[in-house]
Write a protein that binds this DNA or RNA. Structure first.
Lengths: 197, 197, 197, 197
DNA sequence: GATGAATGAGGTTTCATTCAT
DNA sequence: TATGAATGAAACCTCATTCAT
């Protein structure tokens, strides 16, 4: 029973993620989400009270996980340029994996800032912080120049994110991890030269 | 007559831009757009046939202009780092000016790719091309290293755009030109060092 | 001027006849009638005040003319069966000529009885009367049996009208005068035998 | 459940029949149909998807039934003139019963031939056929002259239908079965004399 | 927990018509 | 006389949601 019901909820969430990301929050109707999930429309409301709660559910459920943090020890043991490469590779991988969620965030931040921001801002801050800490470490080690570490984080991640955004959403290119490999190398090369002492 | 009518059309377009960017295409109703423009709802349809045509009108009307190109001569006469600074400054200025249009593009690309892409892709390609040409010039002059010029364009503009995006849309920080000044300097510094021979 | 204006009015009436008969009174819009007539929509209202007045105009303008009456002398000089044949032939010809008007009458009598009846009832009554008078004449001459002459008129015309109706409107068969020739002969034959002494 | 729902659907169909026949398809609004049926407007759309489907529903639901066929054995056992009388009486009864449906057919055939024809043509053909078969039988028995049996069917039914049409729809006379009795007798008398050997 | 039936509110769009020129 | 621009009213239809089972 609990299992059954969990799975029902899960099915609804998956359909919602799929359809919200394809048609936007307003464009996807509860009717079609329910149909896609194979349940009656009312059942959706049993589980989520309102469409907005469903959106929240989707965002919570599929929230980013700090995979980067988990890789931090490995990163610290690598040479600077290799470390940067691992960082952006991990970042890009998570972007590709969360592509649907990112679509929703991008298209709903405008109309539901109150729903999106509280969940997305902390993630961003922590991401920047984590990377900035790494830069501070390296600056202390005398390896890097004395730049604003948070700003540099945003520069590096920004290059990657913007590239990803344009490729996937503007040019609609469905890139694979591998297809991004060389680009990441080039970005890292420029950034590394620009920040090394 | 023509003047009157143009101004009516213009008023509708402005209201549409405002409301589409605030509430999204589906979230903004023709009723409130008309009301905001101070005309009857039917009048809107006399001028645009359908809501979709209105969206097209908004996008066409407020289309980006290659202000960068116009500045190219001046850019070529400056020292590399100063040139980069002028480039990103011009770019950011246009982002801030077109903020509402960008909002619409970001949130509707998902659900109206057919409407948005044809108008946005060429602009992007030309933007990258223009900047890449500058890099090629500088590489020929022996000033820059031998990197992929288009990719580098995207790296530089990506940093700026991503920063702009996060500030304005995620952190909702209504930044002025001036408030971005130092950040642009820092980005340019990193990028310049990373690309100079 | 008067000529010009008459011709404008006439063009509108023709377009209205055409479109009312194709799409019904409600189905045809003033916009498309005006467009078909090659005038601005407002011009139509200059000439007819309202859509209803336009319908009246169409009905008046194209009203049936008692072509039968004009043929009465000839009819009286013919043998009974030949006379009947000329009568139904004349009747059918007028049906085929007025087909569009008949369409309108059939489809609008329901929703505009007040507009249609006053114009159509007198015509019918006169038609029946005229034919009945002929029957009375022939009964007095001892040629025909002693039946109700008006009822017999309606029987004869009813056969023809019903056939016409089914062919043209139900089976959509655009018949020519000639294609009806034999059918009329058969109808007349049955009716003649049924009424002759 | 099923019963409840059937009754709701039935109520809507009845109101639609009533209002379509009174005001025409375009003249009757879904709003008033729903109101007349005592349900919300949306409910109407839950059951019929679109106004056109509702029209189809009305036509299907109230389709003519070949009551004539059922009476065929009795007819065959009667004398010719009595047989004809029973035939036209049955026909007229069905016309009076289906008056509303006939109104709709008459007024919408023009604008919805695709909806009406497929449902009405087969009925007509079968009606003509059934009656023609009777005439053929009688011709074989040497009782009737050698005329085209289908044409004769249309002549007989045409007289009756046309009379009905003019009375009910043009003269708006709401006739009862009885009021038609004598007229039918007269029609039958003429037709019988005209076709008997 | 799940659902078929029902709904109030509101969406885009079209219509006949008027105003000002 | 003729018209381009504007409109109030209302059309069909859809949405998220509730009720009763």
């Amino acid at each position: 029973m609990t299992l059954e019901s969990q799975s029902t909820k899960e099915k609804i969430l998956q359909s919602a993620l799929k359809l919200f990301s394809k048609k936007g929050y307003l464009g996807a109707t509860t009717r079609e989400i329910a149909k896609d999930a194979g349940v009656a429309e009312v059942t959706l409301f049993r589980h989520f009270t309102s469409k907005e709660k469903l959106l929240e559910g989707v965002l919570e459920n599929y929230s980013f996980l700090p995979e980067l943090k988990q890789k931090m020890p490995e990163i610290l043991s690598l040479k600077y340029e290799e470390a940067l490469h691992l960082i952006v590779k991990t970042f890009l991988k998570s972007l590709l994996t969360r592509k649907d969620t990112i679509k929703i965030i991008k298209s709903e931040i405008l109309t539901h800032p109150d729903k999106i921001s509280p969940f997305f801002q902390p993630f961003l801050r922590e991401l920047y912080e984590t990377l900035a800490n790494y830069f501070v470490e390296m600056q202390r080690g005398g390896i890097l120049k004395d730049f604003d570490p948070t700003l540099a984080s945003r520069a590096l991640l920004g290059m990657v994110f913007s590239y990803f955004e344009v490729e996937e959403f503007i040019f609609q290119r469905e890139g694979s991890q591998e297809s991004y490999e060389q680009i990441l190398r080039d970005f890292v090369y420029i950034f590394a030269r620009g920040t090394l002492k």
